[in-house]
Simulated assay, not measured.
Amino acid sequence: MTTSQFSLEGETVVVTGSSSGLGKAMVERFAEDGANVVVTSRELDNVEPVASAINEGDADGRALALECDVRNRGSVDELVDQTVSEFGSLDVFINNAGASFQAPVAEISENGWKTIVDINLHGTFHGCQAAGEYMRDNGGGKIINIASVAGQRGSRQMSPYGAAKAAVINFTSSLAADWAEDDIWVNCIAPGLVATEGVKSQMGVDDDADAIDRSRADRTIGRPEEVADLAQFLASPASSYIVGETMTIKGTPRLE
């Protein structure tokens, strides 16, 4: 069976917010497939262990740990510059950094609202614009935005997060239409419930990711690696006819 169309060997991939959870699963997957990866978060101490584990393991790709606050455009520009300086290219940029909290709408402060929108929406805008500037001048590339099912249908007590992710989904479609002529593929992933540390702490989910059986269809919680599988597909040549789409990954439908 031919599998070369799914390969990222030799490419350079940046994943924001990759010290844990979905982002960590993505950089590990891409490095295993032979891509050079940039592991980022606001605190360098959080990403250095992830990059070191990749570099000391059996992965074919190399990892670079960089500090980046996606709310700060200058920080994102520096991330792109350092990536290209280290690896010589930028082929895939994944806007994964995000944040959320749970609270009734009446109790959300203006600062709380702005903080969540700033990280999830403005951070995605900064990443797209900075990566796109390089890609337009260097033959194109792939941009993948990480949204959420909360951005498709809302979510109780997570209104700023849901609103920001809804904007990310719409922004993805608009940007894809604008940048397709530059051979920049822009797509989006909207995960449902995934067994990450963040989900466990915020939503009281106690499922262990390693105990989730991938061979079962009847479930509504996934493993981080399953989202990484979809990200790898969208980052690879296999997704060449997919542009401006939001791909939902949430398990079994629950019909009313």
Rank of each mutant, 00 (worst) to 15 (best):
G74T: 07
F125G: 03
T196W: 01
A176S: 15
D183C: 01
G132S: 15
F87L: 00
D182E: 12
G10H: 02
M158Q: 15
R62A: 10
V70A: 00
N46Y: 01
F6V: 00
F87Y: 03
N95G: 09
L121V: 02
I116V: 15
V205S: 11
T124V: 00
E67K: 02
K200Q: 15
N72I: 08
E28Q: 15
T40P: 06
A238D: 00
H122S: 07
S41L: 00
N95M: 09
M247T: 12
E256F: 12
T2W: 10
E48G: 06
D183E: 14
V149Y: 10
A65W: 03
S89W: 05
A63N: 09
G154N: 02
S85T: 10
G57V: 09
G10S: 00
V38G: 01
Q202K: 12
T252C: 08
A147H: 05
V47E: 01
T12W: 03
F125Q: 11
D218K: 14
I119R: 00
G88P: 02
G222C: 06
T220A: 11
E9L: 00
Y241L: 13
V105R: 09
T220S: 14
N120D: 15
L64V: 02
S100F: 09
T2P: 14
Y161P: 13
G141H: 07
V194H: 03
E48W: 04
S7V: 04
D81R: 14
S4M: 06
E226T: 02
C188D: 06
V105H: 10
D207T: 10
A211M: 12
K114V: 09
S155A: 15
G140K: 11
L175Q: 12
T246D: 02
A53H: 12
E56Y: 10
A195D: 09
D182M: 05
V14C: 05
A65K: 03
G192H: 12
I146C: 02
G34M: 13
Y241I: 11
M247W: 06
K142C: 12
V14F: 00
Q102I: 14
S174R: 14
P253H: 10
V92T: 14
R42Y: 02
L8F: 00
G204T: 11
P253R: 08
A228Q: 03
V105T: 14
I221A: 05
I144F: 02
S155F: 14
S155E: 15
E56N: 15
L22D: 06
V205R: 13
E256D: 13
